[in-house]
Amino acid sequence: MEDWLKASTEVEASWVTVDLAIFTVRGDQLMVLLIERGLEPFLGQPALPGGYVQKRETLHEGALRELKEEAGIDGRQLHLEQLGAYGDPLRDPRGRVVTIAYLALGPDLPTPVGGTDARRAYWAPVSQLGSGAAQLAFDHPAILTDALEEVRRKLEYTAVATAFCRDPFTLSELRTVYEVIWGQQLDPSNFRRKVLNTSGFVRPTGEQRLPPTGRPAALYRRGNAWLLSPPLLRGTGHTT
């Protein structure tokens, strides 16, 4: 018993935070939500929104609160899921901090409003981050990389692409989601055939939308399937 008590007093205290990789499609670009830190450490540097989990809240509740406080966005309207845990002992200069990263997706989300310890919040095009992603605070470059690959993978096997579309949507709008996230052009005819041949992926509303030019486009909503069978696998520049 004495050895156990001694060992317990030598364990370094640790804290739990949540960080959020939030993606949306705006102007045919994949965007990620970033904040400019208003406090040390990493004062003035860009970071993913997040913060400490309070004593009496769940991880999910903490993620929703931080999203609301730091960016003014209601996370209850988003597709929100855990991405993973990150616990490198040196990831935070303040001490041993383990973070639970969340992945959040939504359709054409509004301009964020910074608050609490965020000087400002803004949407950054993922395609233009480049080496700038390495300037993100903490281990957020790794979290962002993992989150982006997870979204790309989920587009192949699940109906998560519909989380980027406002109901109802056209197949062209759905195809744009795949193109901007995968970074490749997809053949419209092949994409349409694959989507409509994937049971439960989308369901027609029976209505049409009249574009400024061209033919009316049929409108759809997400179907009742989450896992796609067959999956829509990433190709070499086009669907087959």
Results as ranks from 00 to 15, higher is better:
117 D>H: 15
120 R>N: 12
121 A>E: 07
122 Y>D: 05
122 Y>K: 01
123 W>A: 07
123 W>R: 02
124 A>N: 10
126 V>E: 12
126 V>P: 13
128 Q>W: 15
129 L>W: 06
129 L>D: 12
130 G>N: 05
131 S>N: 14
131 S>I: 15
131 S>Y: 14
132 G>M: 05
133 A>K: 11
133 A>F: 11
135 Q>D: 14
136 L>S: 04
136 L>M: 05
137 A>C: 03
137 A>F: 04
138 F>K: 08
140 H>V: 08
141 P>C: 01
142 A>L: 15
142 A>G: 08
142 A>D: 14
143 I>T: 06
144 L>D: 10
145 T>L: 13
147 A>S: 13
150 E>D: 14
150 E>P: 09
151 V>S: 10
153 R>H: 13
154 K>M: 15
157 Y>D: 15
158 T>H: 10
159 A>P: 08
159 A>T: 12
160 V>K: 03
160 V>Y: 05
160 V>Q: 02
161 A>C: 05
162 T>E: 11
163 A>K: 02
163 A>S: 10
164 F>R: 03
164 F>H: 04
165 C>F: 02
166 R>V: 09
171 L>Y: 00
173 E>K: 07
173 E>L: 02
173 E>C: 02
175 R>K: 05
178 Y>W: 07
178 Y>I: 03
178 Y>H: 01
178 Y>D: 02
179 E>S: 00
179 E>H: 00
180 V>G: 08
181 I>T: 00
182 W>S: 03
182 W>E: 06
184 Q>C: 06
184 Q>I: 00
186 L>S: 05
187 D>I: 07
189 S>I: 12
190 N>T: 15
190 N>Q: 13
191 F>S: 06
191 F>T: 01
192 R>K: 11
194 K>I: 15
198 T>M: 06
200 G>L: 04
201 F>P: 07
202 V>I: 09
202 V>L: 10
203 R>W: 10
204 P>E: 10
204 P>H: 02
205 T>E: 12
205 T>M: 08
205 T>G: 13
206 G>Y: 03
206 G>T: 00
207 E>F: 12
207 E>G: 10
207 E>Q: 14
208 Q>A: 14
208 Q>I: 13
208 Q>R: 13
208 Q>D: 12
208 Q>C: 13
208 Q>W: 13
210 L>R: 14
212 P>T: 04
212 P>G: 04
213 T>K: 06
215 R>M: 15
215 R>G: 09
215 R>K: 11
216 P>G: 04
217 A>H: 10
218 A>S: 12
218 A>R: 08
218 A>C: 03
220 Y>K: 01
220 Y>E: 09
220 Y>R: 00
222 R>D: 04
224 N>S: 07
225 A>I: 06
226 W>A: 06
226 W>L: 14
226 W>M: 11
230 P>A: 01
230 P>T: 03
231 P>D: 00
